[in-house]
């Protein structure tokens, strides 16, 4: 990843409408139009980063520091307008485990849909379906529509599907919850196994414990830039040390409107 920048255009209701474009073009000439009629937020600012095989990277930093955006760039969801990204290997983002779940469909149908979204073939999903079903312990409920599930049952299913993948590069965002106490222990083991299978892990988290336990390297993000990179202990210390000090240069602050 070399000098990657990502900016988000924030269109409010006015600047997004064609009406304004047409009206300004027709009425007041070109002065009012142009690129400056929407706010741009610079979420990543010249980030350069190299992650090698076997590295378990923790992304730390305050809310809005650019952790999630960085993960999404790595996942190939946001293609950065500036900079280059090269990723070798199968990437699996695990951001929102409830993604693409349909409340009206049965548990089995949801397993199929979700698997297809993750890029699996039907045959591959069929091979996994039994294992997933068994893990959820939902039994006959898997034939019922999801809307009849309790929150805990829903979480079990979402978790089981999301973690049934075999990625080379695993991207995790924040904590992943999964149902009641008894299940939690089982879920933890499964997540650990998944993480161990992956050759590269990138985890964005606010939990020091999680970062210390899972990662062998940490990156401290600040204002859309990499503030520092090094061992987890060192970075966590720095993060907490800095947390009380206000952001260094407000001009570069992420969230600060540029133009």
């Amino acid at each position: 990843m070399d000098r990657v920048s990502v900016s988000f255009p924030i269109y409010d209701a006015r600047s997004r409408s064609i009406k304004k474009r047409v009206l300004t073009a027709a009425g007041r000439g070109r002065i009012a139009t142009g690129e400056s009629n929407h706010v741009v937020i610079r979420a990543l600012d010249g980030v350069s980063l190299n992650i090698e095989h076997g590295e378990r990277v923790g992304l730390i930093g305050r809310n809005g520091a650019g952790k999630t955006t960085l993960l999404r760039v790595m996942a190939g969801i946001y293609e950065p307008p500036a900079g280059t990204v090269e990723v070798e290997g199968r990437v699996a983002p695990l951001f929102d485990i409830g993604m693409g779940m349909d409340p009206e469909s049965s548990g089995y149908e949801n397993i199929l849909l979700r698997g297809l979204y993750l890029g699996l073939r039907k045959a591959e999903i069929r091979a996994k379906i039994e294992e997933i079903a068994e893990f959820t312990e939902l039994g006959e409920f898997l034939d019922m529509p999801l809307r009849t599930y309790s929150a805990g049952m829903f979480a079990r299913l979402a978790f089981a599907i999301s973690t049934s993948i075999d990625p080379e590069i695993l991207l995790l965002d924040e904590g992943i919850g999964a149902g009641d106490e008894a299940f939690l222990e089982k879920a933890k083991r499964r997540l650990d196994a998944l993480i161990n299978r992956a050759r590269i892990l990138v985890l964005a988290s606010h939990s020091d414990e999680l970062v210390r336990k899972l990662c062998n390297r940490a990156i401290l993000m600040q204002n859309g830039q990499i503030a520092a990179s090094g061992s987890t202990d060192e970075m966590l210390e720095r993060y907490h040390g800095k947390a009380s000090v206000p952001a260094s240069s407000p001009a570069h602050a992420a969230g600060e409107p540029v133009s």
């Binding site: 307008p81 900079g83 280059t84 290997g89």
Partner: peptide, 16 residues
């Protein structure tokens, strides 16, 4: 999922 993703760009919004 693709095996390799690569993007490159020189400036804002100007992929070759």
């Amino acid at each position: 999922m693709t095996s390799t993703l690569a993007y490159s760009a020189s400036g804002e919004n100007t992929l070759p």
